[in-house]
């Protein structure tokens, strides 16, 4: 676990688990069932969250979701490639059936400026034409710079721009937590 000193825990493992279960139910409710659902996580942590949501959807519906979950890397579509050090892309994995005419739920850990999602929509358009695209985020911390909103949110977390919101997941970080810390710290 890599939680730093001065960081305040906003969500613990149980709360993260409950938030994901709730999002899974909301996805099914909004879609009137599991038909055509495809989950695409945005690397790194969005991919693990998408997998967890897929596991929950499989539990709830009794339908296998293994071939309905994937990863969507947005690196090549970012609008800040020039200004930042070279970013290494991560693999994109799209279910064999593709995204055409599917209901694609993009899954990310934190919704912040909205620029990652803008890039994700472009990346998705290169792969095909989904019937509907929805957005699920574990945390919405505000400060949008683009007209983008999430359809499913685990936790609204009002924050100052100077604060750091960190999502820790067991698969990557060894434990589940959402923390917030003062940028000055």
């Amino acid at each position: 676990m890599t939680q730093r000193a001065g960081a305040r825990t906003v969500l613990g493992p149980d709360e993260i688990g409950r938030a994901l279960t709730r999002i899974a139910h909301e996805i099914l409710e909004a879609n009137h069932g599991a038909d055509d659902l495809v989950l695409l996580g945005i690397p790194t942590r969005g991919v693990h969250l998408a997998q967890r949501l897929a596991d929950r959807l499989a539990d709830i519906t009794g339908i296998g979701f293994a071939d309905r979950v994937g990863a969507l890397d947005v690196t090549m579509h970012r609008d800040d490639l020039r200004g930042r050090p070279t970013r290494a892309p991560q693999p994109t994995r799209v279910p064999a059936a593709g995204v055409d005419d599917r209901v694609v739920v993009l899954v990310d850990d934190v919704l912040y400026s909205g620029r990652t999602i803008r890039a994700a929509l472009d990346a998705l358009a290169d792969l095909g034409r989904p019937r509907v695209v929805r957005l699920a985020a574990l945390v919405d911390r505000g400060h949008r710079e683009l007209p983008i909103r999430a359809d499913f949110v685990g936790k609204n977390l009002p924050s100052a721009r100077s604060e750091h919101v960190r999502i820790l997941l067991d698969e990557v970080d060894g434990a589940d937590a959402v923390t917030i810390e003062d940028g000055a710290a």
Binding site: L81, R82, G83, R84, P85, T86, R87, A88
Partner: peptide, 9 residues
Amino acid sequence: ASDHPSAEL
């Protein structure tokens, strides 16, 4: 791609 390429790539 970047105006500030990193050393790793």
